[in-house]
C-alpha cells in the first residue's frame, strides 16, 4: 500500500505528502526518538504522538515511509513546511496509536 492510498482511508488525513507514492512496508509505533531510530526500519509507517520538529529529522534520517500523528495531534506550520521541504510524508489521525496499529495490521 502506498502512503497516498493510506491517506484516502476514513481515519486518516494528509498533512504533507511530498512523496505520496512511497510504498509502506510495515509499521513502528513509539515516541522516544532514539528508540525509533534504533528499531524502525526503512519504509515503515511511524506512529507517534510527538509533533516537535525533531520528528521530521528522525523520519528523514531513519527513512520511514511516513509519519502518522496519532490522537488528533495537530502539527504547527513549521513542522509541516519542514516535512514538505525534507521529503517527509506526514498523515494524522484522531485514533490512538493502538487503534491505528490495528488498522495498519488489516490493510498492509
Amino acid at each position: 500500500m502506498t502512503v497516498s492510498e493510506l491517506a484516502q482511508l476514513d481515519d486518516f488525513e494528509a498533512v504533507a505528502l511530498p512523496e505520496a507514492d512511497r510504498e509502506i512496508d510495515g509499521a513502528y509505533s513509539g515516541d522516544l526518538l532514539s528508540w525509533v531510530m534504533g528499531r524502525a526500519r526503512a519504509g515503515n509507517a511511524w506512529i507517534t504522538i510527538m509533533s516537535n520538529i525533531n520528528v521530521v529529522a528522525v523520519a528523514s534520517l531513519a527513512d520511514t515511509a511516513c509519519v502518522i500523528l496519532a490522537e488528533g495531534v495537530i502539527p504547527d506550520e513549521e513542522f509541516t513546511a519542514t516535512a514538505q521541504a525534507r521529503q517527509v510524508n506526514v498523515l494524522r489521525s484522531g485514533k490512538p496509536a493502538y487503534e491505528i496499529s490495528l488498522i495498519l495490521g488489516s490493510v498492509l
Binding site: 522516544l32 534504533g38 516537535n52
Partner: peptide
C-alpha cells in the same frame, strides 16, 4: 519532553 534522553544515543551510534 522532546522525545530525547532515552539513553539510546550512544548505543544507537554503536549499533
Amino acid at each position: 519532553a522532546l522525545g530525547f534522553g532515552a539513553g539510546m544515543g550512544l548505543p544507537n551510534m554503536k549499533r
